[in-house]
Design a protein around this nucleic acid. Structure first.
Lengths: 341, 341
DNA sequence: CTGAAAGCGCTTACAG
DNA sequence: CTGAAAGCGCTTACAG
């Protein structure tokens, strides 16, 4: 009950009859420590329940093994999984995630300061944007920054190829001979949305097709449902519609059903993201699946390599694009194809 | 480019013509610092871009403002939201989340060690279990532990009232005059599952009803769909079924649709959790909604109070149960009721 | 209201 | 292979 002092390396050293340096070296895995000494230290440590203090180590070694992860609370249902993947993958690499949240409409500057105060070894920013000044500040403190699923010219970025994904959906629509084509966009000025749109519309134009309907949502199920309601209450007749997120696409499909329309017979629907719900039987949504594991692994490998190279600050920032995967499901299949499988 | 030394409080002190102590006090918000001095320090700090080093502060002040959050990667879709809420709420309180992941079938011991090494001020364990020894270890290092949505006799726990929730569903079923009642359980030996089951079955028994069907899933959509398939392929005819998670309930409903059954006319379905997808139009699932905000806030308020009270270790651990909310939706409504609304 | 100084628990040259 | 000692950047009695 009494505040018995925390056990430190000094205590272990005394008990094991060695110097504090030796205890430190033992736990650092220094191979110069004689095996017998090592054993003795470890056994004493175990006995008294000693574990090294990472905070002290951080101060002294100037490296915390902490990685800051900044996430916006996005409505898209993709990011919770991303966060979980990062936490898990970091753990495997002996690092740990210090997680920060920013409002999806704000930028990450507010919290970046705090992140740096914790002396994180690196910073991963997902689903929000950063100012150039903040990037500067990170550089000053030798903290490499990685943008996840967003690109910025002066920052290392890793991102699914939204543009290419949009093109793939366009190709699919043309291949399926849909003629009256609509599009449900995400939040207008997000990079993600712009890229998905410009890929989709650009490729459509190359095929000589122009969309005949256009509405805007905010990536959420709710906005998709609302868009669907007004679409199906109108006299617009579409063969197919591309939605900038899976959640919106599912909302729109539910609205279709509630309005007595059948997917894909009355209207084909495609989304983007590849969230688990998209593959549920009731939805079976055609979509571009984000290569989540590759994105996460790519980010962390890149980070590791950067941290290991002493001259990383001299290297120009790069943007890495990873292709998504077209998942063709029943929401765009023609009836015959369904029968065929 | 060159490794210009990090700016420390000593630099600021020199530039501002005060002692390092004064700089420290200024940033600690010490009211004894003369306003003019304070201004000067802050302006110099701003000019040179100084911010306090939290790691050093942590070592010195023996408090890191770090809270460890241990999460299992549960299939239930409830926890990603919980994590996001914790991160956000902690940030508001000037604390930060160090997030750890454990396999859902393991216990938290493996990572707890690491958590303690980071000298977290407190530990929140969600969706996994801990050994008594580990709880001991936490006590030794003065780290209060809170179990989230799980209870253990020797640990502070905060949890939705699973038992009561099960009873509410039973009452609803009886009220709706369902006679042939089934149950789809979660993973057999999880506490959550046991409590939901015993509440449900116990209350049913009090009404003189015994379930006529029972299957087991693992909380996932997939397992719910599979259970539904085999149920609807059998000659069992049920009026209603209670599933131990929303994801399973939705899977089962999708299987029902695919088998040509109508919900709730052919079979009524209820779940547990209150995940956002449950409220989507296509599902409209009756469920017990977890009081997520109250659970998170309750945990953090409790944590704050504990950290503020010097004698917290002498207080016996408590278990706090919060009631869930019955959300009656179309998956259990009788046809007439639907018409009525 | 302010400063000098000890101390938090490690790492890491340096010397042997 | 090991130890003595400086130092990481703060906080916080203690003294004035």
């Amino acid at each position: 009950m009494a505040d018995q002092k925390r056990i430190t390396s000094v205590d272990v050293a005394r008990l094991a009859g060695v110097s504090q340096s030796t205890v430190s070296r033992t736990f650092a895995g220094d191979t110069r420590v004689k095996p017998e000494t090592r054993e003795r230290v470890l056994s004493v440590a175990k006995e008294v329940g000693y574990v090294p203090n990472f905070i002290a180590r951080g101060l002294s070694a100037q490296t915390t093994n902490l990685v800051g992860i900044v996430m916006a609370d996005v409505a898209s249902m993709f990011y919770p999984y991303v966060l979980q993947e990062f936490v898990r993958a970091l753990q495997k690499r002996g690092k740990h995630a210090l997680v920060f949240n920013v409002r999806s409409d704000g930028n990450a500057d507010d919290v970046l300061q705090e992140t740096l105060q914790y002396q994180v070894d690196a910073l991963i920013i997902a689903a929000s944007t950063v100012s150039d000044e903040m990037v500067e500040a990170c550089a000053r403190t030798d903290t490499p920054v990685f943008l996840f699923n967003r690109t910025l010219p002066h920052v290392n970025s890793i991102c699914v190829d939204n543009y290419q994904g949009g093109r793939q959906i366009a190709d699919l629509f043309v291949r399926n001979e849909y003629e009256n084509i609509g599009v449900l966009t995400g939040i207008e000025d997000t990079q993600t949305n712009q890229q998905r749109q410009s890929g989709f519309l650009g490729r459509l134009a190359e095929h000589g097709v122009a969309p005949s309907y256009r509405a805007q949502g905010d990536y959420t199920y709710k906005s998709g449902y609302a868009a669907g309601r007004s679409l199906f209450n109108s006299d617009v007749a579409l063969d197919a519609i591309f939605c900038a997120s899976d959640a919106m696409a599912i909302g729109l499909m539910d609205a279709a059903r509630d309005a007595g329309r059948t997917v894909p017979e009355d209207i084909a629907v495609a989304g983007f993201d590849g969230i688990p719900v998209a593959d549920w039987a009731a939805n079976s949504l055609t979509t571009i699946e984000q290569p989540m594991d590759a994105l996460v692994k790519g980010t962390l490998d890149w980070m590791d390599k950067t941290l290991a190279s002493p001259d990383w600050k001299t290297q120009p920032p790069r943007v890495k694009l990873l292709p998504g995967t077209l998942m063709q499901r029943r929401s765009t299949s023609l009836p015959e194809i369904i029968v065929a499988e």
